[in-house]
């Protein structure tokens, strides 16, 4: 198993290298000059040139790339043009809100969607099944920002249960932290609930026709245990896949949600960095995101073997 993990991690290196080259080139080839942005609207061309030299943007592309990669290999993500801070610090300061939001979202989604999907499969064809499936189509179709503003309108403005916007770090108290996390997490979880519930239903439904389910009944097992002990574990592989893809998509999704709820996370940082043409920050963020994708994929594959001994052996 350790050898397998090592091989997978080694295989990630070329992927990340290609991403690094593409990100670097794409940023350099799109129009717009960070030096001009930083120097300000009234700067003379000499001033801009000075800034450019200070940032190292006057050097040739290969030289710039070599410097960047060299720093990366020493664990140095570089200095942000715009925020005038080390990018490592910048990301570290923004990671808690994003991680909190992603984790809370997935937790809500999995806890709601899997039981819904299992019950829908068990009672398949019933009114309950139809309601769950109908809601899931709705969940897919409504954009995140619409759900967000709708929830804000109902629960914050009308009922006054939750704050409209903002984030409070965990260090300032669990109560306030959770209180501010609920609405954005629920908002973001809607589409994943729809996706995971659907996948759970389909995959449990298939498993319920298997012979070993009949064997379990022949042993006198109760239906609840047949569903959650015999069926769900067999149906797990496609569900895990969707949850994994969900987590990966989530990283993209936080950009919108963090904007709607004014949460200072990585999503907001990405938007700000792009608007400011902050090359080093954008490069570091994209590289980090792709690293996370690779890691999630590895975790998905490892989780398979947790559920299915046939993959383990």
């Amino acid at each position: 198993m350790a050898g397998y993990i090592l091989r997978r991690l080694l295989a990630a290196i070329p992927v990340l290298a290609i991403v690094a080259v593409l990100v670097f080139l794409m940023l350099r080839l799109t129009p717009g000059d960070p030096a001009a942005v930083i120097a300000g609207d009234n700067a003379s061309s000499e001033q801009i040139a000075q800034v450019r030299q200070k940032l190292g943007l006057d050097q040739s592309l290969p030289a710039q790339f070599a410097i960047w990669i060299g720093n990366l290999l020493h664990g140095n993500l570089g200095e942000s043009f715009f925020f005038k801070k080390s990018i490592g610090e910048l990301i570290l300061g923004r990671i808690e809100p994003t991680l909190s939001l992603a984790a809370a979202t997935m937790l809500i989604a999995v806890c709601v969607a899997i039981p819904l999907g299992v019950v829908a499969a068990y009672r398949h064809g019933s009114w309950l099944d139809r309601i769950v499936m109908g809601m899931s189509v709705l969940g897919f179709s409504v954009p995140v920002f619409v759900i967000g503003y709708l929830l804000i309108y109902v629960f914050s403005i009308t009922l006054g249960w939750f704050p409209v916007q903002g984030y409070q770090p965990l260090s300032a108290g669990l109560g306030g932290y959770l209180h501010r996390l609920v609405l954005p997490a629920v908002t973001l979880s809607v589409v994943y609930i729809a996706l995971i519930a659907r996948m759970t239903r389909a995959s449990v439904l298939e498993v319920l026709n298997e012979d070993y389910i009949r064997t379990a009944r022949a042993k006198g097992q109760v239906e609840r245990k047949i569903l959650f002990r015999h069926a769900l574990k067999n149906a797990a592989v496609p569900i895990v896949t969707v949850v994994g893809i969900g987590i990966a998509l989530l990283i993209g999704g936080v950009v919108v949600t963090e904007s709607v709820f004014a949460i200072p996370g990585l999503g907001r940082l990405t938007v700000d960095a792009v608007l400011a043409r902050d090359y080093p920050t954008i490069q570091a963020l994209i590289l980090m995101f792709s690293g996370v994708y690779v890691l999630i994929n590895l975790l998905i594959d490892l989780t398979y073997s947790l559920f299915d001994p046939r993959i383990r052996h």
């Binding site: 298997e210 012979d211 070993y212 009949r214 064997t215 379990a216 022949a218 042993k219 015999h230 574990k233 067999n234 559920f307 299915d308 001994p309 046939r310």
Partner: peptide, 15 residues
């Protein structure tokens, strides 16, 4: 108690 035709599929593969 009952035993079935297909021993390949009558046992739960993940237990």
């Amino acid at each position: 108690a009952m035993i079935f035709q297909e021993p390949m599929t009558a046992l739960n593969p993940v237990l």
